[in-house]
Every structure is written in structure tokens, then in C-alpha cells.
């Protein structure tokens, strides 16, 4: 059983959904980011979704763009991210760790090279935000060879053909988009998304976790009541980091209470 399967089985036994916070690795710097990531796990995150900083993140709104810029300005590279993730993995052997990133970071040195580094660092899954199913084959092939789960996106406007392909290829979990647009709390997710969730189940897609526009415990509860296996909250989490850049203890405390509140809302 891989880490995602183990997590879903454990949560199922407890009658809970997953709460998955997203942060940018290396935001604002590697050392602080490592403390942030450990805090998220300590505070009850069931899994982590982590960004690798990229200069041109077309699927992200202003909050996550700013996080990437902070990290890049501090010299964060994928290599430094992997070194840090390996330390996190050593400390927390069971928490699923997923990456969310952009294709050019992966192809610049070759897909197999990048996925190999990720696997060695203890990463469980990779979602490439600008690789749709139509371009996914080389990524899926390498993912299957290296044993990293390629996470696929189910958008609200997905065609039957798209859902069927997600059913065939998805591993780990399915990233269910709560709405159109880019990441950010400015526009809330359209939950419940029962119709789409039920279709995903028909096509035997990996368990759907809802993301985009999730910032409150009430949204988490609604998502899980609608049948989602969990909820991802990115911009709301990153906003807490951005607000407390000059006060690390306050930042960690605010993250702790946010994650605890969001996690509490996952009970079915």
C-alpha cells in the first residue's frame, strides 16, 4: 500500500476526509520553510501539497505567485527543495508528500531525471499544472517507471473523454478543481460539486481532493459532505505566511490554529 492509499484507509476508518495544506517550498527561505512544513504536519495535516518555485506560474493567482517570487529571490532551486524534503521525509515517514509545479522545471534536465530526484527525496506524487492529459504521456510513463503518482486534474468543464482518461491513468488522488480560474481566495470554490464527484467515481478515478478557492472550515465540511475525499487549501495557507514574515513564532502559531481548525472540519 502506498502512502496515499494508507492515508485514505486510515481516514476511512476514522470517518474523516483529508485536509491537505499547500505551501511553496522555500517560501520565504529554505530554513523557515522547513519549519513551516513540519508545523503543518504537527498541526494535523493529513498530506502535503508543495509548490516548487517557478518564474511564470500561469495557473496561480497573486498570493502563490508572490510566494514563488519570495523563494526565488532567496535563491531557492529545485535541488535545494529536494534536499529539504528528504529531511522532512526522514522525520515523517508516513505523510504523503505531493509536488505541484510547472513543466519547464521538469523538462529542463529531462523528465526521468527530475522524477528520480523527487522519488529519492521521498516525494509521493507530482502534479504538473501546465501539462493536460493530452501532453501527459511522457510524464505518465516516467511516473509509472519511478513509482511516483502522476496527479491528474479534473476541471469543472471536463468532458466525458477527459474523465474516462483520468479514470484510466490517475494514481494517488485526483485534483478536483472547485472552479475555473487560477488559485486564490478571491473567488470561492463552487461546492458542492456532487455531480462531478459522482462521475469521477463512475470512472473509477483516484479519490478526489477539492482545491482552488478553499479557505474556511465550512468549505472543507461542505466538500467532504459532497463526497470529496479531502480538501486542499493553498492561498489561505500562504497568506498566513505572507502576513507574518517578520515574526516566525506568530506565523507558526497562526498556521497551527488554521490547520487544526481546517482538520477539525474534515469529520464526516
Amino acid at each position: 500500500m502506498d502512502r496515499y492509499e494508507a492515508m485514505f484507509a486510515r481516514l476511512n476508518d476514522k470517518n474523516e476526509g483529508a485536509f491537505v495544506p499547500f505551501v511553496m517550498v522555500g517560501d520565504p527561505d529554505i530554513e523557515t520553510s522547513e519549519k513551516i512544513i513540519c508545523q503543518l504536519i504537527e498541526s494535523g495535516a493529513d498530506a502535503l501539497e508543495l509548490g516548487i518555485p517557478y518564474s511564470d506560474p500561469i495557473a496561480d493567482g497573486p498570493t502563490i505567485q508572490a510566494a514563488a517570487i519570495r523563494a526565488l529571490e532567496n535563491g531557492v532551486t529545485p535541488g535545494k527543495c529536494f534536499e529539504m524534503l528528504a529531511r522532512v521525509r526522514a522525520k515523517y515517514p508516513d505523510t504523503p508528500i505531493g509536488l505541484l509545479l510547472y513543466s519547464n522545471l521538469v523538462v529542463v534536465h529531462g523528465i526521468d531525471h527530475f522524477y528520480g530526484l523527487a522519488k529519492d527525496a521521498g516525494v509521493d506524487s507530482i502534479l504538473v499544472a501546465d501539462v493536460p492529459l493530452r501532453e501527459a504521456k511522457p510524464f505518465l510513463d516516467v511516473a509509472n517507471q519511478t513509482g511516483v503518482a502522476q496527479i491528474l486534474i479534473a476541471p469543472p468543464n471536463a468532458t466525458e473523454e477527459t474523465l474516462q482518461q483520468i479514470g484510466e491513468h490517475s494514481r494517488g488522488y485526483t485534483y478536483l478543481l472547485g472552479r475555473a480560474g487560477v488559485t486564490g481566495v478571491e473567488t470561492a470554490a463552487d461546492v458542492p460539486a456532487e455531480a462531478l464527484i459522482s462521475k469521477l467515481s463512475d470512472y473509477q478515478c483516484a479519490p478526489p481532493i477539492l482545491g482552488f478557492g478553499i479557505s474556511t472550515p465550512a468549505q472543507v465540511t461542505t466538500a467532504i459532505q459532497a463526497g470529496a475525499a479531502g480538501a486542499i487549501s493553498g492561498s489561505a495557507t500562504v497568506n498566513i505566511i505572507a502576513k507574518h514574515l517578520d515574526d516566525l513564532p506568530a506565523m507558526l502559531e497562526a498556521l497551527n490554529s488554521f490547520v487544526s481548525d481546517m482538520k477539525s472540519a474534515t469529520a464526516k
Partner: peptide, 18 residues
């Protein structure tokens, strides 16, 4: 054909494919 030899393609979020 979305490609010119090895170049081109549709490297965009799934959302934009439709």
C-alpha cells in the same frame, strides 16, 4: 497536428483545453 516536429503542443492547464 498540434506539433511541428518535436515543437509546439498544448502545455496549458487542463481547464483551458476545451
Amino acid at each position: 497536428d498540434s506539433k511541428f516536429g518535436e515543437f509546439g503542443g498544448m502545455y496549458v492547464p487542463e481547464l483551458l483545453i476545451p
